Simulated scan of single mutants.
Amino acid sequence: MKRTKTVILLVVIVACFATALIYLWQKNQEDPVTYATESPSEQTIVVKTMATGNIVPKEEVLIKPNVSGVIQDIYIEAGQYIKSGDLIAQIRVIPNVSSLTSAKNNIASSKTALETAKINFKTEESNYNRQKALFDKGVISENEFEGIKNTYLQAKQSVEQAQINLTSATQNYDIIKTGTTSGLGKIAQTQVRATISGMVLDVPVKEGNQVIEANNFNEGTSIASLADVKKMIFEGKVDESEVGKIKEGLPLEITVGAIENQKFDAVLDYIAPKGEAENGAIQFEIKGSIKSIDSTFIRAGLSANASIILDKAENVMAIREALVQYDRKTKQPYVEVEVGDQKFERRDLQLGISDGIFVEVKGGISKSDKIKVWNQIKGIPSYAQNN
């Protein structure tokens, strides 16, 4: 029994030894590790951050009526270009009973005031004529006559003012009842006209809809929205982690989802001083003016992305960032440059900006140097071997 155990143990030892010899032999048959190399190239490196948003008009004007009533006619439709002063809609006024009664009472009061002023004027006119005859004969002094004359002129002015008040009360009654009055012409309040030239973006009302005038207690009913579609802006939001990297005046590249293969240049004009919480993150609103879109029609409200260019280096020497190694102690970036057949030496680098793929090299190597691909995965070809 003891002899059998000894034999088994010897067999196991011999098997392990044979396995080790076979492994070492196979290892010795493998080709030695051969490192691929890459040379620096000329690149334009752009460091940017992204923002999502929409294309909206720079100035959108809401047209609202001057009087409350019912839409009688609409003369425009969305997508139409109109000029400032063009007629948009006609309103039929439905008078308020209380306001109408008050206006009637004002007319009656104005008529009474006018009659009273006329009677007073006739009395003062008769007195003035008598006193003037006495003044002409030298019976009364000039000072006394001047006082009588002033009273006469004041009575005459009171009649004129009372007539103006009656006319105003009558016009106010007509406006309350019909929305217009004689003498208003093109500025009749029942006629809604464009205040700017541009495209009609939306007409949210229809004929027969009731509308309310804008006042201190109500913002009024919008009859149409107008905008100059040649002056559009990008309106979007950036995350709080990115807002510290941007500032007003930075260039933007706008891409619109509905317009393929075209980019629009813009300038960042506005960054909100206060963020808003959205989906658990703080977002800051930004706005950028698109420089020129004369040849392209961009519809308001289209979704778009903005690349905010933080830094840019054009036509500089660069290498793939994956080629860069860092000293464990000093954190100094370096690469290994080929100096012979599969022989490499360390070269410390001075790096510039990086876009995550390529990094600018300011010093340490030349364009003719061949850099070791130190982290190449076996079986997968290099990004660019021996270029």
Rank of each mutant, 00 (worst) to 15 (best):
V324Q: 01
T190F: 13
F234E: 00
I13S: 08
F121P: 02
E321Y: 08
E336C: 06
Q80P: 04
R92T: 02
K64T: 05
G236L: 03
E360N: 05
L302H: 15
S241K: 12
V7P: 13
V256N: 05
R299S: 15
N143H: 07
F145N: 09
K245G: 15
R193L: 14
A20T: 01
G179H: 04
L166A: 07
I140Y: 06
E38L: 10
A318C: 06
E278Y: 15
S289F: 02
T296D: 07
K206T: 03
K122V: 06
S41Q: 13
N172W: 05
V61E: 03
V97L: 13
E345K: 14
E219G: 06
K48C: 09
A258V: 14
G185T: 03
E125M: 06
C16H: 01
G138K: 08
T49W: 05
A113T: 06
I13H: 07
I119K: 14
K367W: 05
A108L: 11
T19E: 00
L9Y: 14
V139D: 11
I91L: 12
I223N: 00
N215L: 13
T221Q: 09
I45V: 02
D202C: 12
D86H: 06
G185N: 09
K287H: 12
S98A: 13
Q171N: 12
R130H: 03
K367I: 03
